[in-house]
Nucleic acid binder design. Structure first.
Lengths: 237, 237
DNA sequence: TACCCTAGGTGTACGGCGTACACTCTGTCA
DNA sequence: TGACAGAGTGTACGCCGTACACCTAGGGTA
């Protein structure tokens, strides 16, 4: 009969990559709160402590999981104006995050960025600079865009409503007196047939609306700074 | 000698409010990851399970903690135009969140809003409506503002740098080759003497910059919608 | 007075988590 | 042949949230 060691010898050897892939798959399936060192190990047919030969700990593992997602973002487009280029890249980031809904939460909860994330940010900053943004304005822009630069914006209610519509409608009805404005908004949105995702609202549209509001604002700020600059350099014209 | 029960009788009786206050204090001191049912109980001189007579569980407790913070936000100003009114309220929310840095994280991580948060959102939506925003535009506005409505925006790097400046400078220096754009930005920011928070950047300025970018954009959208509306209602003028 | 009911605090226990530490096995190279 | 290193194992510790049964004091009712 085979010992555990002999079994282990016949398995594909563990590696950081295999661990990360298993962790991402687990998070995709069960959500990030379902990811534990023990479960990943079980998934790989290995004892929990085996993971620690390839990964420093759970925190580093989460960082690695984010890297897997960020690596799926398209590279920047060349030969395009800054605005469409940045816009497209952010929407690509959004697509990556939609494939892994847990990723934005994990990003929020971390304090230290991984090298992969830094590289993405660096390239993003470079795109602003190449578009003629001053260093200062670029700085303001990155703060203003915040997590939208990475392709997500945290909504306050993550309404992953698994309740059936009838119950939900009644719940909202009960809210009519207590929260009249929210109720009114709910009525408008749920009756809006131009919406895409059923009776709810079109998240993609909302994201792009906010993104364009931001980009338009930044474009104006950029133009203002440039004419000001021009005036200073050629005051006699 | 007194039994535990007799001791308990002499303590101030437990209450939901006392529990919440202790939890908030604990989070302020140790951060939210240091908050556990057991620690709160210890702080109150009580056995962990005692808390469950007043609070359904940890999740409900976190909700209650948020309510404590949200309750500190100033009520809406009357007799003021929508823009300064909303602006002031959001900045007040920001102040509340600055007093309890853990709160924004907890808000992000929750799925269901508490009644207190709903009431805040309801009143915020009402402010847009009173300012002449259509229901649709109000809806887009709430999405576009996202967590900024609650007074925070998640930054990607939460640089609570507890490292000393010399070490940090060297770290950045090593990054010069790998992340040239980030490095360039770092140089600009750290040499900017108009900054308030030492060599870093002025978070309050950045928040207001982004907030105003957003509000200006919304104002434009509102104006555009209104002239359009006016044109439709009086096409012959 | 005797009774019971209820609300609030206690004690024990279970299953999960991350991970420190000491080990065994296997292959490599001298 | 023997030393060594790297990969996987096993055990154990101290946290965590919370289910469940228990006790006890105070108050209302018969």
């Amino acid at each position: 009969m085979a010992t555990q060691m002999e079994e282990a010898a016949q398995r594909a050897p563990l590696s950081r990559e295999r661990i990360l892939d298993a962790a991402v798959a687990l998070a995709d399936r069960d959500g990030v709160e379902g990811v534990s060192m023990r479960k990943i190990a079980q998934e790989l047919g290995v004892v929990p402590m085996a993971l620690y030969k390839h990964v420093a700990g759970k925190d580093e593992l989460l960082g690695g999981m984010i890297d897997v997602v960020v690596a799926q973002i398209d590279p920047p487009a060349n030969d395009v104006d800054w605005k469409p280029a940045i816009r497209a890249r952010i929407l690509s980031a959004r697509q990556a995050l939609l494939r892994h809904p847990w990723a934005s939460r994990v990003m929020e909860s971390r304090t230290e960025p991984t090298p992969t994330v830094l590289a993405y940010m660096d390239s993003m900053i470079g795109m602003f600079r190449a578009g003629g943004f001053s260093m200062d304005l670029t700085h303001h822009a990155t703060h203003a865009m915040g997590s939208r630069l990475m392709g997500f914006s945290q909504e306050l209610f993550n309404d992953n409503a698994d309740t059936d519509p009838a119950v939900e409608a009644e719940m909202w009805g009960a809210m009519a007196d207590t929260y009249p404005s929210i109720y009114e908004l709910f009525l408008t949105v749920s009756h809006d047939d131009t919406s895409v995702v059923g009776p709810g609202c079109d998240d993609q549209f909302e994201f792009e609306f906010a993104l364009d509001l931001m980009l338009d604002g930044l474009e104006r700020a950029r133009a203002a700074a440039m004419t000001e600059e021009g005036a200073r350099h050629a005051p006699d014209r």
